[in-house]
Nucleic acid binder design. Sequence first.
DNA 1: AACCCGGGGTC
DNA 2: GACCCAGGGTT
Length: 343
Amino acid sequence: MKFFMIEQVFSQNIENWYRNNKRDLPWRHHPEPYFVWLAEIVFQQTQIAQGLSYYKRLLKAFPTVNALANAQQDEVLKLWEGLGYYSRARNLHLTAQILNSRKQLPQTAAEWLKLPGVGPYTAAAITSVCFGERVACVDGNVLRVIARTHFITDDIRKSTTVKTIQALVNSLIEYADDPGDFNQGLMEIGATVCKPKAPQCNRCPLQYECAFYRSEALPSAVPFKSKPQKRKVRHLHFYYSSKAEDVFLFKRNDKDIWGGLYVLPFEESNGKDCPSSTINASLIKKNTHLLTHQQIHYYIWDMESWYHSPVELKHFSRFVKGRDLPALPRPLQQFFNESFAKM
DNA sequence: AACCCGGGGTC
DNA sequence: GACCCAGGGTT
């Protein structure tokens, strides 16, 4: 008769389940650091279904660290256009240039952690999968799964709760056969079985180790997550000329939203009224764009010509309509698609 | 520790 | 409309 500690059962169940149930994802065929690093950056706060085509496009355009390092930032951002959280693309590019000057890529989480855009989660994911380092990945999935199995009811938005769970999984991974499989398995269970609203406990490999399953608790009760703050309301007035043959755009800085992307000249107002109410322009589009933390009411004003712009244009660049434009925020990307389609 | 940073999918 | 997502940086 052989006896196992609960931690051993836990990790073995995860790894065995993962080897039989893992999804077929591109970077899992050849888990090299560059492929895994790129994947981890693309899929930060991004579901697989949403980011997969972006990952493939980026890898095709930049098959190596060297290729990525030698690209222009605008090229990288253009391929990232629409995916959001654009600092990921800027830091990805910056880190590629740092790595490109070295002989080899880092092999420990501590070394990866020093690079821009690489935090505790990403560093652990890369080195556990590629080098078998025994460091736990704690993402949104892991927080939910562990909060349930161990019935942790603290607010998972609190950094103290994340630290508790990080320490807990770090102790569990000591018993793993393959730390990479353990980490990916735990996340995969969260993504495909232990879902937020309707967990499929009947097919979960941790069913008999799970305090949540044994309890009468509702899925919505564990994990507990405090309410997010309300969206900030903003009004943005963009200026455009449908008659002109060209477009004026400027590259935004890294502060505020859409850093590194290009936008039309615009002004912001506190209310709905256009700050330049005296200009001779007609409203051609009005809509609302929702971000996680902002509700953006945007207005696009059609001017007779760029000469009528209320915004100084000397720092803007001209682009020909219909030609390839640089990376744009979603609202402007949509607007140009609509308006150029009619031309 | 709190706040900022996107966009799409789901119920 | 509320909530979720293979998080990280800044203040």
